[in-house]
Amino acid sequence: MNSKYDKYINQWNNIFSKEIPKVPTNQRSGNRALDKGIEWICNGTKSILDFGCGNGTMLFLCALNGTKYNIGVDLSEKAIENAQIRAKQMSKGEYRFIQGSIDALESISDSSFDAIILFNIIDNLYPEDAEVLIKEVERILCSNGKLLVKLNPYITLDQIIEWDLKVIKDNLLDDGLILLNNTTEKWKNFFSIKFNICKYNEIYYPEFEQTNRMFWLTKK
């Protein structure tokens, strides 16, 4: 899987190489809509996995919201390096960070996690990899386990033309990263095959003038 994402791994390595690793000092992210999702997935949760964890921020927030066992997986070596440095600064939670792809999930036992986070990752994969990831997530989650998914905004045809984005094929774009540009309805259909949709809400980030989409899901 890695070779087709090498370009993007290099981009993230470059971004994280400029970062000064610091950890959150309280359980709030600063975005109320996001915080509600974090509170929901952490409620009653001991073990949580974040695939596409970057520098570990979401897991650190989860630990401050009560999770105990926190595992992160990311393709970027530098992101994982930063996450490991930051974990040593945390007063709460136990952490393990793994540099790797979906293949890294294969060694994780069935029904072994209470909750999983997929933030701006499943729609930054090729469609065939998104299918594999969601199957692995279902396998790893315990019965009635929680899944919190955050997606990039849907880009309209007019925006694709205006921003001169590259269309790889159908709804697969290259906007600097791979973007699986599904409508919200198409994502609902995708998730509802294996998960119950408890809630859908949108998160506005004023600093980016961008709205992300969030699904609160439980395993069927």
Rank of each mutant, 00 (worst) to 15 (best):
L133A: 05
T211P: 02
I80Y: 12
Y69A: 05
Q99N: 14
R32S: 14
T67D: 06
F195N: 01
E77M: 13
K88L: 14
L141Y: 00
K186H: 13
I121E: 01
K36N: 10
L217C: 02
K219V: 00
K46A: 07
D74Y: 10
S101T: 15
I160L: 05
I117D: 02
L148Y: 02
Y69N: 15
L59R: 03
K46P: 07
I197F: 11
N120Q: 09
I9E: 01
Y95A: 12
M90V: 10
W163S: 08
N144H: 14
N196L: 08
I161V: 09
W40C: 01
M1F: 11
D123M: 11
K150R: 13
K188I: 14
F190N: 10
I117Y: 00
E162G: 01
P206I: 11
I155C: 03
D129L: 09
Y95D: 12
E209M: 11
V23M: 04
R96K: 02
L59D: 10
K166G: 08
K186T: 15
P206K: 12
S101Q: 10
D6E: 10
N201K: 07
N70H: 06
Q89R: 07
E136Y: 00
V137F: 00
S3M: 05
L64I: 10
F215A: 04
D103S: 15
